[in-house]
Every structure is written in structure tokens, then in C-alpha cells.
Design a protein around this nucleic acid. Sequence first.
DNA 1: GATGAATGAGATTTCATTCAT
DNA 2: GATGAATGAAATCTCATTCAT
Lengths: 209, 209, 209, 209
Amino acid sequence: MTAEKDNKTNQKRSLKERQRAEREQLILESANTILLEKGYTATSMDEIAREVGISKGTLYLHFSSKEDLVLALFEEKLSAFLQLLDQVLEEEPTTQKRLERLLLETYKEIIEGRQMLIALQSIGMDRNSFRERVNHETSAGSLTQRITALFDEGKQSGEFDESIPTSIMVSMLFALMGMFDHWKQSELPSAEVLTQSVCQLLFRGILAQ
Amino acid sequence: MTAEKDNKTNQKRSLKERQRAEREQLILESANTILLEKGYTATSMDEIAREVGISKGTLYLHFSSKEDLVLALFEEKLSAFLQLLDQVLEEEPTTQKRLERLLLETYKEIIEGRQMLIALQSIGMDRNSFRERVNHETSAGSLTQRITALFDEGKQSGEFDESIPTSIMVSMLFALMGMFDHWKQSELPSAEVLTQSVCQLLFRGILAQ
Amino acid sequence: MTAEKDNKTNQKRSLKERQRAEREQLILESANTILLEKGYTATSMDEIAREVGISKGTLYLHFSSKEDLVLALFEEKLSAFLQLLDQVLEEEPTTQKRLERLLLETYKEIIEGRQMLIALQSIGMDRNSFRERVNHETSAGSLTQRITALFDEGKQSGEFDESIPTSIMVSMLFALMGMFDHWKQSELPSAEVLTQSVCQLLFRGILAQ
Amino acid sequence: MTAEKDNKTNQKRSLKERQRAEREQLILESANTILLEKGYTATSMDEIAREVGISKGTLYLHFSSKEDLVLALFEEKLSAFLQLLDQVLEEEPTTQKRLERLLLETYKEIIEGRQMLIALQSIGMDRNSFRERVNHETSAGSLTQRITALFDEGKQSGEFDESIPTSIMVSMLFALMGMFDHWKQSELPSAEVLTQSVCQLLFRGILAQ
DNA sequence: GATGAATGAGATTTCATTCAT
DNA sequence: GATGAATGAAATCTCATTCAT
């Protein structure tokens, strides 16, 4: 009987936990949308709660501060990107192809509005303390490391020019992933065109051949 | 006697005007520093005033709102960049060289901390209304036009690859100018290295030859 | 069980709503007092909050701006007056008697310090925009219409002199209702004396018979 | 020589004093206009100075505070009204005629926009301290006394009904002088019609004969 | 005397966070 | 667990008044 009860309790708990996770997901999605539209400070906890359909108090049961909430969103986006990276590494044979796929998927997400961590850099959070927390408490460092590794491999395999410092390559890649930022929604080119252009830049430069 | 007096009056006025301009400059510089460090919302008018060493009221004598102050800062940086562009066009013969110089000067300024309009894009202002004001009330549009023209000329002269849309080229350039943004101060490479790397990317891509 | 719970929930909600309404009432009363004493601009939200015993933030939970608060106060007083008008129309047979009752009740309220909408006209709000809002968003227009109708009836029934324009009659009535405004508290005559004097003026003039 | 010089000095001084008085007059007129349009608090010293065409500093050479300025304006209007009263007493034989003239002249001024002290009661100053100062430092008390005397004479001569307290008569008169306050500019009746209607009220009441 | 730049107290309003129910 | 009323710190902005020139 005790076992049975425990079982039930476990099921209940896991049910509750699942519900909890689902709601947390819902919160993050709503926050994502509003944050990208309005920026960090113009987004109020009130508005997020309203969008999700819960009370402000409940929001604080899930995230203990606004900063924490945004940090969790970052983390989620980062881990999704890391997963994408895993998949790409598995499915694409060369570093070139891998970069191309990464760019393509990234642009797609951005254009579809599911947007991405890159964009989050432009939501305008208070820089100092937050930057630190991103580095220490999220996978951001891990992402940088793996992208760095990607380029290093490219260099070792002879694909990439060794005279460009890897750290600069990484930065260039991130910068190019976030470049859409200056476009109006209506003028956005397609993800494919963007990817093609950027890859052409990356692999041949913009000079006429 | 009247002439003499007028003269004095004029001198006085121009003295006052000079002082006024100097103080305005001082305000903009302080604002620049704090804004880049903290972002738009985390920067309070109080703090700017304190930094400049004046009272809040005096701040509002020079700029009638926080937004106006930042807009003025934008404008100042924009016109400085446009001046740089003029100079570069005059002094450098080819589009390639011109881009190189633009990048070099930009990186220099950024690294020296006098920082630049590019960085201002990342201070995180409430997006909608402000973006509009930047476009209507500053030289931002003019800058975009002239950079666009630069690339178009490059294409026409046969220097640049015509298959990449000019608008994407422009965005790539701005993105690459702002890429430092993700570095810690201590890890910043020199402006020369940065420029060289970015130019290599721009003109030959990152592939090994 | 559900029904029971619903019941409880409803009770709770209605309790909260009652509390909310009570507090709103409390705010309006405090505001009324201070406004009449100091005028619109000299009355700060701080002071109203302090008087009610709540925080400034809470004030804004009930009224989204100072102007809105005062508008709500206006509306409350207006609707109370309209109610009084209904009652008077029902209870008094002639227009003369009706006017007399209206004046009497009004003076009573004023003297008792529960004061009235008439007085509110003298709290000195910024004239233009506010006057507009009063006309569009409160029952002020309705009140004027009904008083106008009262005098028109009086004319049609042969009670009142048709040579005086109704609009002027209405203004005279309002003016006479608000005339106490210039007295010190200590010198105020009784409501009955006031009413009798004003009625004598209204119905016979001040000339000796 | 000394006498001559003194003479000159005197002339100069009186010239200066005349200029000073003229400017003071100018200030009061501008203040009058703006105050009636915007109310006390919404009228800034800046705006008055701008309207007059002098600097704020100069304003303070004439009036040592905003309150003092308004008090001076009150006093000016009051003494003008007292002068009018003198003239009317001289020119009109009966109390009735005198009241009629007072009303007519008052309405004229109001409608012509030169407006009057009565209107000033509605500019919404902080009530307590200011009311006191008006009573102690201006001729307001004197005005009340003389109007009181006017009605008392009317009573003694048998013209007015003795059963209405004089103080109430005075208040009614002031109230009726200020009643236009609730009209839109466009709907204002002529001074003559207003006067006639109000006199009819005063002397016969509004009942049909 | 005249000026207007400078001040600083104070006003309205917003919002992350807490906590009693 | 969920709620949302309450808080209070902080932000932007205004303006009467002063004072060095």
C-alpha cells in the first residue's frame, strides 16, 4: 500500500513537475516575444504575466527576479543552439558546410520570429552585472568554446586561412549572425539569400572573381 | 562708442556661446561614457548631471529630454563619421582602400574608448519610437545612403561581386564594424590586426588559398 | 462541492470588491477635503496618499493619474446631484418648490463640509484640456440639460418669466449655488437662511414690496 | 549748478520712475492675460517674462515673488473697480441704477477680455495663505465694505427688502458678477442682455408677473 | 539695472518585488 | 500553489528663485 501510494505520489509529483515545466516554457516564450519587441526595460513583469495568463505572483514562483527570468531564457536559447551545433556536426561533413547550415538555421529562426540568442544581445540590459552572470551562469562560454573549436578544426584541416586569429573569426561569425538587426521587418531578405551572401563573403570575399 | 560697446557685447555673447557649446560637449561626452557602460535605461539623468558636475535642472537647459540628449549624441557621432567618410573618399583611390581606412579608423576610435555610433546601436533604447526619430531627425539615413553608394560604385567599377545584394553588403559592413562589442576590454586585439583580419574576410574570405 | 467552492469564491470576490470600493470611496473623500482646501495644483498625490494612509503606488492602483482621480470625484458628485434632482422632482410639485429644495440640500452639504461639485469648479485646474474632459467624460452635460429642462418647464407652465433666456437662468442658479465660496467658515449663515434669501431673490427680487 | 544738477537728477529719476511704472503696467497686463487663460499654477514666470519681452531676472526686480505679482494684479483691479464705484455713485441717482451700471461695466470688461478681479477668483491659487494676504494686503476688504454700504443705503432708503441680510446680498451680487465663468467664449451673451436679465432677477425675480 | 544660466526642491508616475489571503 | 493589492525606491521633468556677470 505504501508502495502504491508512493507510486501515486510519484506520478502526481511528476505530473505536477511536467505541468510546472510546461508553464515555465510558456513563460519563457511569452517573455521572448515581448523582450524582442520592446527591449529589457520596457518589458514589465506585469505584461509578461498578462501575456501568459497568470498572475505576477506566480511568475515569481518560477523565477525569482526579472534578471533570472531573462537569464533562463538565454540559457534555453543557448542550449538549443548547442543542440543544433551537435546535429550539424553529425550531419555535415566539412566545416564549410557546417557553417553554412548554422547560418541558415539561425537566419530561419530569426526571420520566423522565433528569434535567437544573438538577438538577445540587443535587448539592452544593464551591461556590467548581467554580462558577468551570462558568462558564469549560462552555457555562453561553452558555446564560444565550441565555435572556437570549429574554426580551429577548419584551420587544422587546411580549410581555413591560419593567418586570421580564431577569436576574430568567431566574433565575425557572431556579428554576421546578428546583422539582420538593422533591418525593418518588411525589408528582410529570405534566409536562403542571406545565407548565400554571407557564405560567399566568408568563403570568397566580396571581390569580383 | 556704440560700436565699441557692440563689439564688447558681441564678444560677450560669443564667449557665452562658446561656454555653452563647451558644456554641451562635456555633457555629451559624459553621457557617451555612461551610456556605453550601462545602457540607455540604466543611465539616469541624475547620474549624467553628477558626472558632468552640474545640476539636473541645468541638464534640461541644454537638452529638453533624455531622448533628445541621446539623439544629439547620435547626431554628433554620425556627423563625425560622415566627415571621416568625406576624408577617406578624398584620400583613398579605390573602394577597397576606402573600406580599409573606414574600418581602421572606426576600430581605433572604439578601442581608444572614444567609441562610436555603431556601439550606440546596442545601448538598448525602447525600440519603436526611438528608431523612428533616429531615422527622421538624424543623419542616419544619409550615412546608409552614402555607404550604399560606396558599394554600388565598387560594383560598377568591377571591384565587387555583383551577385551579393548591396543592402546585404552594407549590413555586413556595419555588423563587422560593431563586432568588437562582445569582447572584454582586456582581450581586444589591436585596431590594425582587427582591420587586417576583417579586410581579408571582406576581400578574400576566410578560406585558405 | 464545486457549487460550494464557487460560492466561497464569489463571496471572496465580492468581499474584495467591496473593500476596493470602500477604499476608493475613502480616497475620493480625502481628495475632496484636500482639494477644496488647497486647490488642484497645490494638492499633491503624496499628500492624498498620506491622508488616506496608503502609499502613492496604491493610489495609482485605483486612479491612473491625478487628473483621472479628480475626474472621478467630479463624476461622483455629479451623479449624487442628479440623484438628488430625481428625488426632488418626485417629491415636490412645483418648479419653485423644486428649486427651493435643490438650493437647500446643496447649501446643507456645502456647510456640512461634505461639499459639492459646485465648489469643485473653483479648484483651479488647468483650464483647457480638463474642461473638455469634464464635458466628455462626466455627467456634467447631462446635469446642465436637466436643469435647463427644469427652467423650460417652469416657463411653459407659466411660472417663470419668459423674457429671461433659460441659459442665463441656469447660470444664475449655478452662480447662486456657489456663492458661499467667498465666506469664511465662521461667518457662514445657516442653510435655511441662505435658501430663504436666495429664493426671495429668485422669486421676488430684492426690492422692497 | 547744484540746483540745476538736482533738477536734472530729479527729471531723470522721474523719467526712470515713469518707465518703471510703465513696465510694471506692462507686466501686469501680460500676467492678466496669461493667468486668465491658464490659471495660476500653469502660468510660469518664464512665460510672463517672455510675453513682456524681458528677462526673468527683471521680473523679480519688479515683483519679489509670483504671489506678490498676482497680489499686485489683484490690487490694481480692485482699485479700478473702486474708482468705477466712485464714478457710478456720482453719476447715478438711485441704488438700483447704480447696481445696474456696476453690472453693465463689469460684464463689458469681462466680455472684452480685459477681464476682472471677479474672474481672478477662479484662477485657482493655493487657498489659505493667499486668501489671507488678499484680505490684509489689498483693498478687497474696502471693496466689500463699500458694496455693503451700498446695499445698506438701499435698505435705509426703502428701496431694498430689509429681510435679506446685507452680507447675503453682497455675496449674491459678486456671485452674479462672476457667473459668466461657466460659458464658452462663443456662447457668451452680450453685456446688455446679461445686465438686463440679472437686473430683472435682482429687482423682480424670475417669476412671471 | 538687466540678464539668463544655474539650482534644487518637489511633482507625477512606473514597476520589481513582497506577502497576506 | 496562486493571487493581486500594496509598497517604496527611483526616474523623468518643471519651475520659482538666486546671483555672477
